[in-house]
């Protein structure tokens, strides 16, 4: 199971980065969000131990590690904000350069 998790997270990263590198700006934004998902799952694996019940003091059994969960919560929120911001930037780019093709946006060097 560990290997499967590891491989799937690796695949998520690979897919995300591949999408990020597309010329179509919507795909790039999607790539960023896939990457965020990958990161969140990765954070989950940094837990110190596995648990069988949710991390509530009222629950019986071994709780799942609460710390990475709290970190993921923060990460989700921030990546959501970041993605929304990126999307609005993409919109600005498309409006100003009249294209949704990243490669035509090369005015950064001027």
């Amino acid at each position: 199971m560990e290997l499967l998790t590891a491989v799937s997270i690796g695949l998520l990263f690979a897919t995300g980065i591949f999408q990020l590198l597309r010329r179509n700006v919507i795909r790039s934004a999607m790539g960023l969000m896939i990457l965020a998902n990958g990161v969140n799952l990765f954070l989950l694996t940094t837990g110190a131990y596995d648990g069988t019940s949710a991390a509530y003091t009222t629950e019986a059994g071994v709780h799942s590690d609460a710390l990475p969960q709290a970190l993921i919560l923060t990460a989700i929120v921030i990546s959501m904000g970041g993605t929304a911001f990126v999307l609005s930037m993409l919109y600005i780019i498309s409006a100003r350069y009249q294209t949704a093709d990243m490669d035509e946006v090369d005015n950064l060097k001027h």
Binding site: E2, A6, G10, L11, F13, A14, I17, G38, T45
Partner: peptide, 14 residues
């Protein structure tokens, strides 16, 4: 690049 990055993350996660 995507494949290498994915492999790296796989190794780290594992």
């Amino acid at each position: 690049v995507s494949a290498a990055f994915g492999l790296m993350i796989t190794a780290i996660t594992f």
